[in-house]
């Protein structure tokens, strides 16, 4: 399949008053179109930094990130970032939250508005489009956050522990929900998480990161039936095999 994102020898160091901290070291990987990649690693290993690098929010100290054949130097509309919390703006109703990226890009054309409204309708939020975020449940808010990310038609979704702020029950159902949406919109996704089972249940490929400075220890292709939903995958026999393997690798 064709590679749409490549990281070559990417290194990132932070400067502080007292020292220089290496957050990411010699990172090499690539992502194919339509692939779902999950990165797992111990907390504080620099996972979020990797997403920020891909999003063009920070520049690597050395190395090169290429997306669709050109180097990433600033935030691009081909990537959509989704954070731990939904970060919906409480003073905007659902519809206007979804339109936010279009406003920022000054791209509020009839066509784009119709596309966003279509997403709202397709994913069951039409009757809530005039509601304020406060009136929605945590799971629904996260769905709105995803639709907001999708409204700018990104090719690659960057998901930074998007379920970690939800309680366990909601988390499983939102996880299914988000997976379904991403697949039906045929998006490429990079998920960062510290939850091994979440990674196995969602991803095609799981990248195991080392402690800080983050580098890739292993790359595993998940051989679980791709037609299963994340929740069903958790019941698949191969699930526990992968869990055990990744658990060991993380705790080395």
């Amino acid at each position: 399949m064709n590679k749409i994102l490549t990281l070559e020898n990417v290194t990132l160091s932070y400067q502080t008053k007292t020292s220089e901290t290496k957050a990411v070291s010699n990172l090499n990987f690539s992502v194919s179109e339509g692939e779902f990649v999950a990165m797992i690693g111990p907390s504080g290993c620099g996972k979020t930094s990797i997403l920020s690098l891909i999003a063009g929010l920070i520049k690597p100290s050395s190395g090169k990130i290429t997306m669709f054949g050109s180097e990433v130097i600033e935030p691009s509309k081909r990537t959509g970032y989704m954070l731990q919390k939904d970060h919906l703006f409480p003073w905007r109703n659902i519809e206007n939250n979804v339109f936010l990226p279009l406003e920022i890009k000054k791209n509020k054309t009839e066509e784009n508005l119709a596309y966003s409204k279509g997403l709202i309708e397709k994913y069951g939020l039409r009757e809530f489009s005039k509601y304020y975020p406060k009136q929605l449940s945590g799971g629904m808010r996260q769905r709105v956050a995803l639709i907001r990310t999708l409204s700018q038609k990104p090719d690659i979704l960057l998901l930074d522990e998007p379920f970690s702020a939800l309680d366990y029950q909601t988390r499983l159902s939102v996880c299914d929900d988000v997976y379904k949406i991403i697949k039906s919109e045929k998006k490429t996704a990079i998920l960062v998480t510290h939850d091994i089972s979440e990674a196995i249940s969602l991803a095609d490929t799981v990248l195991v990161l080392s402690k800080r400075p983050a580098t890739i220890l292993d790359s595993c292709e998940m051989d679980i039936d791709k037609s299963l939903t994340p929740l069903k995958r958790r019941e698949h026999p191969a699930f526990s095999k992968w869990f055990e393997k990744l658990w060991k690798e993380l705790n080395l």
């Binding site: 999003a55 929010l57 600033e74 935030p75 691009s76 509309k77 990537t79 959509g80 970032y81 954070l83 731990q84 919390k85 970060h87 703006f89 936010l100 990226p101 406003e103 920022i104 890009k105 700018q152 960057l158």
Partner: peptide, 22 residues
């Protein structure tokens, strides 16, 4: 909220957009 600023930056927002919208 720093994270909301980060979110807007990831959408490519300028400083004046960050101020006015957030």
């Amino acid at each position: 909220d720093e994270n909301k600023i980060l979110l807007l930056k990831s959408m490519g927002a300028t400083k004046s957009q960050i101020f006015l919208k957030l």
